[in-house]
Amino acid sequence: MAAPVHGTASSAALTLASKPAPIAASRPPSDINATALAAPDAAGVVDPRRAFLLRDVFASNVTRRLKVPAAEQRAYSDRLETALEADTLGSLSGEYVVLVDRNANVQALLIYFRAVPADAWQMIGASPVATGRPGEFDHFITPLGVFEHTPANMDFRSEGTQNENHIRGYGKRDMRIFDLGWAQGERGWGKGGVSQMRFQMHSTDPDRLEPLLGIRHSKGCVRMPASLDAFLDHYGILDAEYATLIDSGKSLWVLKSDRQITPWAGRYIVVVDSARKSRPAWAPAPGGKARAKVPAGADTAD
């Protein structure tokens, strides 16, 4: 169902400090003035072009980034628009959208924004991910389509515990798991076919599995860098519907008190397959050293 186009956020969702808090302890905070970012002009309108200031924040705080050439950014903009139009969301604007290319030769997540429907989608930043790898039991191929991030499937946070293979499948403690609910996924084992899978987007074991981002390696979910997870969480990139609940007076434990949601929070994750036959230089695969650190059974993690 199409969501209303929006370019402002309510006071409850915009309790912002003068400077963003650090997203990753090893990285300095951006020098962006978050209060100014959300401040309306004399007419009471928040300039949607300020949404692009988050490019600098992304570059400062997300430690695993991809340098996507301008021509490729435009190509993914076209793919995003095509996918949204197919889902009756062709006029969507004024909010961030997350795009994932599940192609085995790419494995990338890109954040896009456009101010109005007449504009082209423009990239905010990109990072390597890992999507579903077929070939073993209970491993799905990450489904294609447009998925809505909604509190109907409430997010939760990682406990940071290890499984029997000493893998923290959801990453270190307190990382956010973005839950997209049940989806129809193509089974990557046996005779194939389609069945339901729980579709999530989350960080992964920082020592063993995060270095493997860039190749298919999950059971169907989208694994992402911890610093990207924290960026999405801290700035509410996908939290439009969570902000609506906060405005209605709800208290949500999963949302941190120091978060700084922007006026352009979105709600959609779009998964495409670019059908590439070879790996582009801007999306390198992990090297042999990273692969050598993976213990037996690591693929049992989500």
Rank of each mutant, 00 (worst) to 15 (best):
A25V: 14
S158F: 13
A42N: 12
A38H: 06
P48N: 00
G192A: 09
D258E: 13
E241K: 15
G145S: 04
N105R: 11
D179Q: 00
P22D: 01
A285E: 08
G214N: 05
H6P: 00
V106A: 04
V5K: 14
R168K: 10
P280M: 08
F58S: 04
A3R: 00
S93F: 10
D41G: 14
P22C: 05
S60R: 15
G249K: 09
I124H: 06
F140S: 03
I23N: 11
T244I: 09
S10F: 12
R173Q: 13
G220P: 01
R55Y: 09
R176K: 05
M224A: 02
R55M: 11
V5Q: 08
P206G: 11
S218Q: 00
T262E: 00
A12K: 03
D56W: 05
I246Y: 02
G288A: 01
T204L: 08
R79V: 06
A283E: 07
P206R: 14
D31Y: 15
R176T: 02
R291A: 14
A43C: 12
V5Y: 12
D138A: 10
T150Y: 05
L84S: 00
T204Y: 08
S77K: 13
K250Y: 05
T161I: 07
S257W: 02
R198V: 02
A43W: 13
A230P: 11
V97H: 10
R102S: 03
I261K: 02
K67H: 12
H149I: 04
D273L: 12
L109R: 02
P40Q: 06
K191M: 03
G160K: 05
R65A: 01
D56F: 03
D273P: 06
A51D: 03
L84A: 03
A12M: 10
F178N: 01
V129A: 00
A42V: 09
W264T: 07
K277N: 10
R55C: 10
A43K: 15
R173A: 13
W264P: 01
A290P: 08
I237R: 07
S218F: 03
G188P: 05
L209C: 08
I246P: 01
P286F: 08
A275F: 13
R176L: 03
